[in-house]
């Protein structure tokens, strides 16, 4: 279980609070106006921002003691998810062993992961030789390979067209199913939130609200979500 225990995050004058928990394997879309603090929340869980007060716990353990790399977390950023000077296979390998001393089993694991996301045979390419969709797939393949129990997606597909984005969401669901990961996905698009399934945590006015079942929320939205969605 992921617990945000009376969490307060501050960046300059900006303040964000959250106080809720989610069971392992949940799918949570994080939605809200620009600048509301969606990325800030993900940064804190990933270990790039120290909470001002409160705790972030995973299965009862406080994550504060762990560095970003030690946390049970894989994060996909908006861009720069792959190192441009390394091959796709090396980029994946880093997710298994940062020193890239890969055993034969590790290497075949990389191949399998590439195969699973539809990039079979492209392991020797550099990121610059991939399309935007392929780069996203490679990043997801690394998430699959790392199989960390929390998967954070900070709008990694924002630059892709609608059709590709649908494809990627499909892939996210498959990766999450296979790794049984809890997914927190930042998005602006209600369709994405619905496609992810599960629940939605709305962020506004400095508060990350507790996740509520997405379908139910959209069929009877409270006023602030109604205002955000632009429905009368």
């Amino acid at each position: 279980m992921l617990q945000l225990d009376r969490l307060t995050l501050t960046q300059g004058t900006f303040r964000l609070t959250a106080d809720w928990s989610a069971v392992a394997g949940s799918r949570i879309a994080v939605m809200g106006p620009s600048g509301a603090g969606k990325s800030t929340l993900l940064s804190a869980i990933a270990g790039f921002l120290t909470p001002t007060t409160g705790r972030i716990l995973w299965q009862g353990q406080d994550l504060a003691r762990l560095t970003a790399g030690e946390r049970p977390v894989t994060i996909l950023f908006q861009d720069q998810n792959l190192f441009p000077h390394l091959t796709v296979a090396q980029n994946l390998g880093l997710g298994v062993r940062p020193d890239l001393r890969l055993s034969a089993a590790d290497k075949s694991g990389v191949e399998t992961a590439l195969d699973r996301v539809g990039l079979a045979g492209l392991g020797q390419r550099r990121p610059a030789q991939l399309s935007g969709g392929q780069a996203s797939r490679a990043a997801l393949a690394r998430a699959l390979l790392r199989a960390r129990p929390i998967l954070l997606l900070d709008e990694p597909f924002a630059a892709l067209g609608p059709a590709l984005r649908t494809e990627m969401l499909e892939l996210v669901r498959r990766v999450a199913d296979e790794t049984e990961a809890l997914v927190l996905m930042v998005t602006h698009d209600p369709q994405d939130a619905l496609a992810l399934g599960g629940s939605l945590a709305f962020v506004a006015e400095g508060v990350v609200q507790a996740p509520t079942e997405t379908q139910a929320l959209f069929s009877d939205p409270p006023p602030d979500i109604q205002a955000y969605l632009g429905r009368k």
């Binding site: 270990g47 790399g69 030690e70 977390v73 894989t74 994060i75 720069q80 998810n81």
Partner: peptide
Amino acid sequence: RLADSLAL
């Protein structure tokens, strides 16, 4: 941040 998240 990517490197940190990969414990590089």
